[in-house]
């Protein structure tokens, strides 16, 4: 068991795929000569050569679309967006083409393509570089959407993603690239659709994913100091969602809070909260509480950005208001 950085875990998963399958290749903006905006692919060009590590022009729609075609043609492309905000330029290709191809061809065509993208706010990049569009893509049938919160999950999920025969959006919280965590030497995978109980508890179920887990970890500590035992669950996978784990926990705790680090309005948790109200109402002592970023574009200023970004104090205030704990 070794401690490695979040970005190193992703890099290890990518390197394994490149080592094991000659039909795996990786492309994106400045991933080769430059080494990647977040240094995930640093050294790959030298190691694997320009046939398999491809620097693209700044043409997200075209190179993502080319990834779809390459996947349909029998390859396993890994396509990197420099930011998930930039994936908007390629959304037509992701949604209309990658996700729909299989269905509209009656199952004739598969798109085994991994899309990777840094996501999330918190590093003062302003409105156009701080968004979290995994919350939109999680809605789209025909593709998968996952987001790790630890180096262990990053490696486990990316291994699964690289075996998946459908398009996958693998969202990488930009705040977590330098996070350290233990990763076993022996091989393991983290399956899609399996939430992880990061911390067991009895009094309240706290749910988030990605960078939101740091907020929940702090909140759980603060709750423990108040004598409240929180069960902290990392969704890990936004499509599919592991409802079984959520429902089992809520049946035990009778209280639930969902946190998005992206805008609360319309976030990934809105759909889940609605489902939980339908499916867990008999166990709930109050409404499923939702915490998320304010309904504004992301500001640049540090103080303003932190005002918008959800904090552990927001979690505690929400629980106090709706459950009196």
């Amino acid at each position: 068991m070794a401690e490695i950085l979040f970005r190193e875990a992703i890099k290890r998963g990518l390197a394994e795929a490149l080592d094991n399958d000659p039909n795996v290749f990786i492309m994106g903006e400045d991933i080769g000569e430059y080494g990647g905006a977040y240094a995930v692919t640093d050294g790959f060009l030298k190691q694997y050569g320009p046939k398999r590590v491809i620097d693209t022009p700044i043409s997200e729609a075209a190179f993502l679309g080319a990834g779809i075609g390459a996947a349909a043609g029998g390859l396993r492309p890994i396509v990197e967006f420099m930011s998930i905000s930039f994936s908007l330029v390629a959304f037509d290709q992701i949604v209309n083409m990658a996700a729909n191809l299989r269905y509209m061809s009656g199952g004739q065509i598969s798109v085994p393509m991994l899309m990777r993208a840094p996501t999330g706010a918190g590093v003062q990049l302003g409105a156009t570089h701080s968004q979290s569009f995994e919350t939109w893509l999680a809605d789209v049938p025909g593709m998968r959407c996952v987001c790790p919160s630890t180096p262990y999950d990053a490696l486990g999920l990316i291994r699964t993603a690289l075996k998946e025969n459908n398009p996958v959006m693998f969202a990488e919280p930009a705040l977590l690239y330098a996070m350290r965590g233990e990763v076993p030497d022996e091989y393991y995978e983290v399956p899609f659709g399996s939430a992880n109980i990061q911390r067991a508890g009895d009094d309240v179920t706290l749910v988030s994913y990605g960078a939101g887990m740091r907020v929940l970890a702090a909140a759980a500590d603060e709750l423990a100091a108040k004598g409240v035992s929180a069960e902290v669950i990392d969704l890990r996978s936004l499509n599919p969602v592991d409802y079984d784990t959520l429902l089992t926990s809520i049946e035990k705790t009778n209280r639930a809070l969902l946190l998005d680090t992206s805008r609360r309005k319309g976030g990934a948790m809105a759909e889940i909260a609605s489902d939980l109200h339908e499916r867990a109402m008999e166990w709930l002592d109050g409404p499923v509480v939702r915490i998320g970023a304010e309904d504004v574009p992301w500001p640049y200023n540090r103080g303003l950005e932190q005002e918008v970004y959800p904090q552990s104090s927001d979690v505690l205030a929400g629980l106090q208001k709706h459950y009196g704990i």
Partner: peptide, 10 residues
Amino acid sequence: LPLALGLAFS
């Protein structure tokens, strides 16, 4: 257009 580009790439 890019779908065809990718197929030709493959």
